[in-house]
Amino acid sequence: MILNGLSLTVNAGEVHAIMGPNGSGKSTLSYVLSGREGYVVTQGSVTYRGQDLLAMEPDVRAAKGVFLAFQYPIEIPGVATMQFLKVALNAQRKARGEKELSTPDFMRLVKARAAKLGVSQDMLKRAVNVGFSGGEKKRAEILQMAVLEPSLCILDETDSGLDIDALRIVADGVNALRSPDRAMIVITHYQRLLDYIVPDVVHVLSQGRIVKSGGKNLAHELEERGYAQFEKDAA
C-alpha cells in the first residue's frame, strides 16, 4: 500500500505544493488522480467538482479538466507535437460538446502560447518528445497545459532535470496560468521550484499520508531540516 490515510482539499484558485522524500507516494498520488491503470484504490474517494473522479477513464478526466504534467514525458515517434496538440484539444472539445477548432484558429492559439514558453516552430514540427532535451520536454508539457487549459493541473517533479534558466522559463509559464478558477498541485522534491512557483499551501507527504501542512515557509523549514523528523512522526 503506497497511499494510506491521505486527505487533501484543494480549492479553485489555490496552488498546493506536495513535498516528500523518495518513495513517499508523490508520483503515485499524481497517477491515481489522473487515472493510470495499475493503481488500485481499495478505499477512499476522490471528488472533483462534485463528481466521483475515480469512476472516470483518464480521457474523461482530461476532458473534464484534469491535466498531469509528466515527470518523464513519453515519446510518440512519427506524431508531430503540433498534430498531437490538435488531436488532444479537439478530442477534449468534442467530449465536452464544443465545436472543434479549425486549423487556422488552432495554429494561432498554439503559436501565441508557444512563443511565451520559448517553444520554437521547429520543435512543434518534431515528433512528440522524440529527441527533446530535458528542458524541451518540460516546456512542451507546460505548452500542452497552456493549450488544453485544464482546471486542475498536477505537476509531477516538473523541476527535475532543469537548469536554473529552464526552470525560470517553465515557472513563468506555470505562473501565467494561475487563475482564480484553476487549481494546481505541484509535486516536488526540492524547495527550489517553490521559489519560483510560490504555493498557497505546502504539504509534507510521508509514507503515504500528509503529516504536516502549512504556509510557504514550511518549504524552507524542510530544506533546512530535512524530511527525517516527519518520517519519525509518520511511523
Binding site: 487515472g35 493510470r36 491503470e37 495499475g38 477513464e57 488532444a88
Partner: peptide, 18 residues
C-alpha cells in the same frame, strides 16, 4: 505499443481507440 504511450495519450483526452 507501450502502456506508457497509451496512458500519455489518454491523459490528454484521447480515447484508447484514438
Amino acid at each position: 505499443i507501450s502502456d506508457d504511450q497509451l496512458f500519455y495519450c489518454m491523459s490528454r483526452g484521447l480515447s484508447e481507440e484514438e
